[in-house]
Amino acid sequence: MKVKSESSKLWKNCIGAISNLIDEAAFKFTPEGVKMEAMDPSHVALVDFNLPSKSFEEYDVEETQVLGVDLIEMDKVVSRAKKDDKFVVELDEEKNRLVLKFEGASTRRFSLPLIEVEGEETPQPELDFSTSAKIQAGIIQDGLKDASLVADNVRFGATEEKFIMGAESDTGSSQMELSKSSEGLKELKVQKPSKSMFNISYLDDIIKAVSSSDFIDIRLGSDLPIKLDMPIGDGKGQLKFLLAPRIEAE
């Protein structure tokens, strides 16, 4: 088994974001592509990573391989990638290790032991979202930074005319609005007004997976989890997160 990505940036960003939430995961390499689903230990966040074979420069996987990896250790390795490095993943069956290589001005090689990862089912719940929006990642990052000045949680809300991010505490409040004419809002569909609150730290970790210029598909409801769908691999693949809400006390 051997796969090669033209750029290491995708893996560097994705593993960096996922490893902030999840310590270990099983990657399923199939002839069609690479998949991984996992839930964080506290069952607050669900991750769904899907990168089809066509998004790779080279993809040689004849039969399905399920490879358990310590994501914390993998993140240490991929963080060493340089901007123009190509990224190669190989399986060393004899040593039961995952081999990671960076090919650029030099070729650097690392190996990680494969681990047993419990094959826990992570079914995605059926949720009746009332709002869908497509928002630039950099706008979300700014809203989170603003909210973190006054609170640990941020409230997402939507009406037919605007999308809102805000926070409030004894120390103050923050609010950011996007109208349908805002450059950072590409799409807004609202069946009925929505409002939910989420932990800023989790969202910060999730947004690190994409560039500030990328647009994120967001699904929202009232006191429902938030779903963030991010394009990866030049739009050929997807990285999805489902984050549980913080229910406000009456």
Results as ranks from 00 to 15, higher is better:
Ser174Asp: 08
Asn153Gly: 02
Gly172Cys: 14
Glu103Trp: 01
Val117Ile: 15
Glu103Cys: 03
Glu103Ala: 08
Phe163Trp: 14
Glu160Val: 07
Ser169Phe: 07
Ser130Phe: 10
Val66Phe: 00
Pro123Gly: 10
Asp170Arg: 14
Lys83Arg: 12
Met165Pro: 09
Leu114Arg: 14
Ala133Arg: 07
Pro52Asp: 09
Lys180Trp: 15
Asp128Asn: 13
Ile72Trp: 11
Val77Pro: 00
Gln124Trp: 15
Met165Asp: 06
Glu103His: 03
Leu100Cys: 10
Ser169Ile: 12
Asn96Tyr: 01
Leu127His: 05
Ala151Asn: 12
Ala137Arg: 00
Leu127Met: 06
Thr131Lys: 07
Ala137Pro: 01
Lys76Val: 09
Val78Met: 10
Ser53Trp: 01
Lys134Trp: 02
Glu116Tyr: 13
Lys101Asp: 13
Gln136Ile: 08
Leu127Ala: 01
Asp128Trp: 01
Ser106Trp: 14
Lys180Asp: 14
Ala167Pro: 00
Leu67Pro: 13
Arg80Ile: 09
Phe163Pro: 11
Ser174Val: 08
Glu177Arg: 02
Gly119Asp: 15
Leu127Gln: 04
Glu58Phe: 04
Ile115Asp: 02
Leu67Asn: 05
Leu71Asn: 05
Ser130Asp: 11
Glu103Met: 06
Thr64Ala: 11
Asp146Pro: 04
Lys86Trp: 02
Ala167Val: 07
Met165Ser: 11
Phe163Cys: 03
Asp70Met: 02
Phe110Glu: 09
Glu120Asn: 15
Ala147Val: 01
Asn96Thr: 05
Val61Gly: 00
Glu120Gly: 07
Val117Asp: 13
Glu90Thr: 04
Ala81Val: 03
Pro52His: 08
Pro113Gly: 11
Ala105Glu: 12
Val61Leu: 04
Ser148Tyr: 06
Glu94Met: 05
Lys76Leu: 06
Gln136Val: 01
Leu67Glu: 08
Gly172Trp: 15
Thr107Trp: 02
Gly119Cys: 10
Val66Thr: 14
Ile139Asp: 05
Ser179His: 11
Thr171Pro: 13
Phe129Tyr: 15
Ser79Leu: 04
Glu103Lys: 06
Leu112Tyr: 15
Ile115Ser: 05
Gly119Ile: 13
Leu71Ile: 03
Ala151Arg: 08
Phe56His: 03
Val69Arg: 05
Pro52Trp: 12
Pro123Tyr: 08
Ile139Trp: 14
Phe87Tyr: 15
Gly143Ala: 01
